[in-house]
């Protein structure tokens, strides 16, 4: 019985963790991505991906953070913001906000 209960608890936790883990991607409809033939990652195959994994302090009266990055003389092809359960917890209770961003510039 104990074993079944712990498995159910584990499954419940897993469901919560999975449900809290998602990403939002903004993609330019008619743009082309900057190329990188060495990138053989499944989701971004052949594209030049820049990952930003950082944290910033937000004061009490601030509700947004800017991340300023160069992208050649064009623009962004894709920007992905990832949210995980850990980030949700940390960002809710700490001033320091974790940011996980990936982007691909336009060719």
């Amino acid at each position: 019985m104990k074993s079944i209960a712990s498995r159910l608890l584990l499954a419940g936790i897993l469901v919560v963790l999975l449900a809290a883990c998602y990403s939002v991607k903004i993609r330019c409809r008619d743009c082309l991505p900057e190329k990188d033939p060495t990138n053989q990652d499944q989701a971004t195959f052949g594209h030049m991906v820049v990952s930003v994994d950082t944290a910033t302090k937000l004061g009490l009266f601030k509700d947004n953070a800017w991340l300023v990055k160069p992208c050649g003389d064009k623009g962004f092809y894709m920007v992905e913001m990832r949210v995980t359960f850990g980030m949700l917890m940390a960002n809710t209770f700490r001033k320091k906000k974790i940011m996980k961003v990936k982007y691909i510039c336009e060719e």
């Binding site: 033939p37 060495t38 053989q40 499944q42 195959f45 052949g46």
Partner: peptide, 21 residues
């Protein structure tokens, strides 16, 4: 890019060892 492990977009087979990309 020497000694490159090449694969295709659909991950169909491979990775294939390549002397020079």
């Amino acid at each position: 890019h020497p000694r490159f492990d090449w694969t295709n977009f659909h991950f169909n087979g491979g990775p294939y060892p390549l002397k020079l990309m």
